[in-house]
Design a protein around this nucleic acid. Structure first.
Length: 486
RNA sequence: GCGGGUGUAGCUCAAUGGUAGAGCAAUAGCCUUCCAAGCUAAAGACGAGGGUUCGAUUCCCUUCACCCGCUCCA
């Protein structure tokens, strides 16, 4: 599949534009056009409905150890700077890097990786070991966006744009428990923008500097956390499959032990074979991580020492005090039935909304052949979106622009428009109108023809099969409603 | 940040040291009774800045962006 064609269609039909394009663009930033915004909203709304608003907290869902509750949260992008110091981002998001100026090398190396890195010069040595090596001074690559709070603010008023939404959930954990009557096990969900100064933004929207996450922090009893991890891993995989990413291009990959973060007991990536990646390679769509009690403990006690695995200890400075002090608040949970007090363990399904939208765009793109009015096969570009995700749910056409057909079509259009995004089109040949809708992935087209005027039925044309069935005019709204929901 | 490539209309491309041409799309209208590329009309571009030159879209420099590779991705 050709990524260039997808990028071109996204621009041409208004799914995605480069940010600030009229000024030459900005590396790592992308805008959603009229169709793109509908697509992404549909994705986020499907996630929110399926994970949060529509969650059944009475039943035990298939694969779940028990019933559980789900609530939402929407917190600020800028938080107290201490949040990032305690979470570890402040220290871990800065890499010292050197570049080698030497002809034949021109490499870039992380300073802390130099001893295990290999310089391309022969004989094989580590960077800097050859006489010819010419390394720059180590320079900081800070992945967090810095900003200043206050109109008169200086460096001492520095703050950060969040690099993930998760921390906002951890620091509000106690607020949520105290205010909403929820009991562990409970998930707190949030959709929102995050920011990372990626060193090399690339591959369309895949690695952007401003991006949107859909995250759940799921709090549970430590003894049940492994079962919950497995539940969420499978649930999230199935969710993406149900949205149409069901082929061999979607992969659930469990991390090896040596790949795990210092606090994680298990992590699985849900990955998609994006067309811009080399054959056989997959890119991360969502990570489902078992984070143990790392985050809540950090925000209670202070930044934990990543080298103290498996029994994490607060990282102490030369003065014997915590390098980054925690809040000192008690974030443990008391089960008021068993009377047990514990620090909940956390399972974190963290999905990329932009990556999800991109995967859906890539998966939807198809070229097939369809006959024209002379019966000859023509190439057809069609976006095969799941009806639930499609930006436009239906299009309404009068077969011809006379005999009262436009009036009937417009009346139907108004009735449908009250329920969801639909388009009305009376321009040109009807075949051309069908193709236009195919290219933006509209799943259904409704055509008012001569027969409509006598028996009050219209044709309903399916985007993927090209088949038409006649539906009573009075039933169209409920018919489309039923087809595009879930 | 380094190396290589690219940048002309909404999209895909062409030509040229004397201010650019096409196809498709889009717009208005015509024709059309079910799967685009029929007809008519009008509209639309040299990524940005600087330099050389009588004159730059073309040559040079800088910059921005995109693609490939190196690097990075907690």
């Amino acid at each position: 599949m050709d990524m260039d064609k997808i990028v071109s269609l996204c621009k041409r039909r208004g799914f995605l534009f480069q940010s600030s394009e009229i000024y030459g663009g900005l590396n790592g930033f992308w805008d959603y056009g009229p169709l793109g915004v509908e697509l992404k909203r549909n994705l986020k709304e499907a996630w929110w409905r399926d994970m949060v608003a529509g969650h059944d907290d009475i039943s035990t869902l298939p694969g779940a150890p028990s019933s559980y509750e789900m609530v939402g949260l929407d917190c600020t992008i800028i938080m107290h700077p201490q949040v990032w110091k305690v979470s570890g981002h402040y220290d871990l998001f800065v890499d010292k890097m050197v570049d080698c100026r030497t002809e034949g090398c021109k490499g870039r190396f992380r300073v802390d990786h130099i001893p295990s890195s290999e310089c391309p010069l022969k004989p094989s040595k580590c960077p800097g070991a050859h006489d010819k090596c010419s390394l720059t001074e180590p320079r900081d690559f800070n992945l967090m966006f810095k900003t200043i709070i206050g109109a008169l603010g200086g460096e001492e008023d520095a703050a950060f744009l969040r690099p993930e939404t998760a921390q906002g959930i951890f620091v509000n954990f106690k607020n949520v428990l105290d205010s909403s009557r929820v009991r562990v096990p409970v998930g707190i969900a949030q959709i929102g923008k995050s920011f990372r100064n990626e060193i090399t933004p690339r591959n369309f929207t895949f690695r952007s500097r401003e991006f949107e996450q859909m995250e759940i922090e799921f709090f549970c009893h430590p003894s049940e956390s492994r079962k919950w991890y497995e539940y969420w891993r499978n649930r999230r995989m199935k969710w993406w499959q149900d949205l149409g990413l069901s082929g061999s291009r979607l992969l659930l990959r469990e991390h090896h032990a040596d790949e795990l973060s210092h606090y994680s007991i298990g992590t699985a990536d849900i990955e998609y074979a994006f067309p811009f990646l080399p054959e056989g390679e997959f890119g991360e769509l969502e990570g489902v991580a078992h984070r143990g009690d790392f985050d809540l403990r950090s925000h209670m006690e202070g930044k934990l020492d990543p080298n103290s695995k498996p029994n994490l200890q607060v990282q102490l400075g030369a003065d014997g005090k915590p390098v980054h002090k925690g809040s000192g608040r008690d974030l443990t949970y008391r089960d008021d039935i068993t009377n047990e007090r514990f620090t909940p363990h956390v399972i974190e399904p963290s999905a990329g909304a932009d990556r999800g939208a991109l995967a859906i765009l890539c998966e939807a793109y198809h070229e097939d052949s369809a006959p024209d009015d002379k019966g000859e096969l023509q190439t057809r570009t069609v976006m095969k979106f799941h009806p639930r995700i499609a930006p436009v749910k239906a299009a309404i056409f009068p077969l011809v622009k006379k005999d009262g057909m436009p009036e009937v079509a417009q009346e139907l259009y108004r009735a449908l428009k009250k329920k969801f995004p639909v388009q009305y089109d009376e321009k040109g040949a009807v075949g051309r109108r069908y193709r236009r809708q195919d290219e933006i992935g509209t799943p259904y087209c409704l055509t008012i023809d001569g027969q409509t005027l006598t028996d009050q039925t219209v044709t309903l044309r399916d985007r993927d099969t090209l088949e038409q069935v006649r539906v009573k005019l009075a039933d169209v709204v409920s018919e489309i409603e039923q087809r595009v929901s879930g």
